[in-house]
C-alpha cells in the first residue's frame, strides 16, 4: 500500500513537473484517437448503408404455368437454398393487384390483357449482394422456375462497393491504430529521454527497475486515457449535429446512419478503453526497453 502511494505520488510528480511534454502527449493522443474514432464511425456508417441496400435487394422468381405444381413444395425447396434470407409468395391475383397499385391511373391497360398472365412468384431476399448471383444460378437450375428477375448491374456494383468499402475500412483502421501507437510511443520516448539522467540516478541510489518504471507507465496510460476521453467528447460533440445536418440535407440517407445514442456512447467508451490500453502497451514497451538500456552496466 505504501509503495502504491509513493508510485502514484511519483506519477503525479511526473505529470506536474513535465507538464509541457504531458500536454503534448495528451493533445497528440487526443487528436489521433479522434481521427481513429471518426474514421471507424464513418466506416461503420458506410457498412450500415451498404447492408441496408443489400437487404433491399430482391430476386423475383416466376414459376412455370402448370396447375399440377405443388406451390408449398416449391416454396419449401426454395427456402432450403443456402442463400435465401427471407421469402414471400405471391399468387397471380396478388401480383396483379400489386402491379395495378403500382401503375395507378394507367392500370386500366392491364384489362386489355384479358386473362391474368402473371404466374405464382416468389420475392426472395438475400443476406449479401454477392449471394444474389449464386441464388439466381440455383433458381435457374430448378425445372419449376420459368424466369428469374433481378437487378443484375446494381447487384454487381453494390457487391463490389461492399468489398472495397470493407477493405478500405480495414486499412483505415489499421493505419489509424499504427499512427496513433507510433505517435504515443514517440511522445513517451521523448518524455523518457528528457528524464534519462533522473532515471539513471534513481537506479543508482537503489530504486528497482519496476519502481522506476511504474510511474512512467501509469503516466503514459493516464495521458492516453485522458486523450481518448477528450477524443470521445469531441466525437459526441461533432457526431450528433453532423447526423442532424445530413438527415436534413440528404433525406435518402435517413435510415442508413447510426443514430442510436446508446450505440455511439458505447462506441466512445470502447474508444476510451482502447486509448488507455494503447497508452499502457506503448508506455510499457518503451519504458522497459529504455530502463533496460540505461541500467545496463558498461
Amino acid at each position: 500500500m505504501t509503495t502504491l502511494k509513493y508510485i502514484l505520488r511519483d506519477m503525479w510528480r511526473l505529470v506536474v513537473h513535465h507538464w509541457v511534454l504531458g500536454l503534448l502527449t495528451l493533445i497528440t493522443a487526443g487528436v489521433m484517437l479522434w481521427i481513429l474514432g471518426v474514421t471507424t464511425l464513418f466506416s461503420l456508417n458506410l457498412e450500415n448503408l451498404l447492408s441496408r441496400l443489400e437487404s433491399e435487394l430482391v430476386v423475383q422468381a416466376y414459376l412455370v404455368k402448370d396447375n399440377t405444381l405443388d406451390i408449398e413444395k416449391v416454396a419449401a425447396k426454395i427456402q432450403a437454398l443456402e442463400y435465401v434470407y427471407a421469402m414471400k409468395i405471391y399468387s397471380p391475383s396478388d401480383s396483379l393487384a400489386k402491379l395495378q397499385e403500382k401503375m395507378g391511373s394507367q392500370s386500366r391497360a392491364l384489362d386489355m390483357l384479358g386473362e391474368n398472365p402473371i404466374p405464382y412468384n416468389f420475392e426472395i431476399h438475400v443476406h449479401k449482394a454477392e449471394d444474389v448471383e449464386h441464388l439466381v444460378d440455383e433458381l435457374n437450375a430448378m425445372p419449376e422456375i420459368d424466369d428469374v428477375v433481378y437487378a443484375g448491374l446494381v447487384v454487381k456494383r453494390i457487391s463490389a462497393l461492399s468489398r472495397i468499402s470493407s477493405r478500405i475500412a480495414l486499412v483505415m483502421f489499421i493505419l489509424s491504430v499504427v499512427i496513433t501507437a507510433l505517435v504515443v510511443y514517440n511522445t513517451i520516448h521523448i518524455s523518457l529521454y528528457s528524464r534519462r539522467e533522473e532515471i539513471g540516478i534513481m537506479y543508482l541510489v537503489g530504486a528497482t527497475r519496476a519502481y522506476i518504471a511504474t510511474p512512467f507507465v501509469l503516466e503514459g496510460t493516464l495521458l492516453s486515457l485522458l486523450g481518448a476521453l477528450i477524443a470521445a467528447a469531441g466525437i459526441i460533440g461533432a457526431y450528433f449535429p453532423g447526423v442532424t445536418l445530413i438527415q436534413a440535407n440528404l433525406p435518402f440517407l435517413r435510415n442508413s446512419i447510426i443514430t442510436d445514442r446508446a450505440v455511439i456512447f458505447r462506441f466512445c467508451a470502447l474508444l476510451a478503453g482502447f486509448g488507455a490500453t494503447l497508452g499502457w502497451v506503448c508506455s510499457y514497451i518503451i519504458v522497459a526497453r529504455f530502463i533496460n538500456s540505461i541500467t545496463k552496466p558498461e
Partner: peptide, 10 residues
Amino acid sequence: FVMEAMSVPK
C-alpha cells in the same frame, strides 16, 4: 526518495 524506493513507511 531513497527510502521511499524501499517502501519505508511515510
